[in-house]
Amino acid sequence: MRTFAYSRADSVERAAHATTPTAAFVAGGTTLLDLVKLDVMQPSELVDINALPLKQVEWLDDGRLKVGALVTNTDLAHHPAVKQHYPLLSEALLAGASTQLRNMATTAGNVMQRTRCPYFRDPSAACNKRHPGSGCDARDGLNRMHAVLGGSEACIAVHPSDMCVAMAALGATLTLEGPDGEREVPFGEFHRLPGDTPHIEHDLADGELITAITLDAPLAPAGSHYLKLRDRASYEFALASCAAQVALDGDSIGTARLALGGVATKPWRCAEAEAALAGQPATLESFERAAEIALADAEPREHNAFKIPLARQAIVRALREAARLAGTTQEEQA
C-alpha cells in the first residue's frame, strides 16, 4: 500500500482548516483503506477524525433528530430513538454490509462511500469517475450491476448505500464545517448526478467536513419498510432496494415517501411517484401506478434491464408493507 502522512484532528475547526486538497479524512476507514490498497484513492495525508466530539444522537427542539457524523452504523441502527421513530433507517442500516463493517463504518462515512463499479475499482480500466476523460468501460461492458436511473454517457455507476436510501425517503439535512465556517445542505442536494463530471460526486468543498446529519421530524402516524433485493440473502449490495414510508388519511394515502437504491447513480428519491400516491386509495393499483412512474425514465444497458421490473416489484412490495403497518398504527391510535 502506498505511503501517506497521518495526523489526528483534535478539533472540528482545525480539521476543516488544516487539510490540503490531497488529504482525506478517515473515520471508519472501510471504504478508504479498501480503495487505497487498490490504488484507486491516493491520499497524500490521512486526517484521523475519530477523536472529534461527533458521536451524539440528540432530539432538537423542533422535533428533528440530529445524528453526529461519527455515530457508527451499528450504534445508529440500534439507537432507541431511531428504532422507535425511524425504523426505516434502522432496517436499511442493518441491511447493509456485515456486522464487522457496521461496527467500523460511520454515519458520514456511509454518505461518502464510493461506488462498487468494478471498472472504477480497477485502475487498468477506463473510468471517467476515477480518471476524468478516460472513458467508461461499463457502458458496453459487464453492466449487470449498473444504474438504470440517473446515468449519463460518462458514467452509470451505482451509489451503493442502503442508509442513504432511507435518508432520502425520510428527508434530512447535512451540516458541513469548512474553512469558511458552517453551512447546511439538504440531503437530496448533496449527492450529484454524474453528467459530464462523474468525478464530482457530492457538494463537499476541499477541507469541508460533515459534522452531523439531522433527520426531518418523524412522519406520524406512519408505516415504513425497507426492502432490499440481492444475489444472496445477506452481506451483498442491492440489485434493487426500496425505502417506503406511508401515512394514511382514513383509507387513503395522506403522505408517501419513496426512494430507490441499487438502480441509480445517487440515492434516488421518487418525488413524482410520491405526488401521484397522495390522496389515492392504498391499493395494489395505486402502488403499481407509482412504480410505473418511478421507473418511467429508466434506461437499461445490455445486462441490467432486469433491474427495471425488479425495482417496480420492490416499490410495490415496500409500499404494501408500509401501508399495512400504517393501517395497524392508525387502528391503534383510533
Partner: peptide, 27 residues
Amino acid sequence: CDHGQCGACTVHVDGQAMNSCLRLAVM
C-alpha cells in the same frame, strides 16, 4: 481477501468485532 469481504481477519476492538484488514494500526 484483505478487503473486508471474508471476515477471516476479524478481531475485537474495544469488544466489537472488526475487520483488522481495514483498520490502520495507528487508529
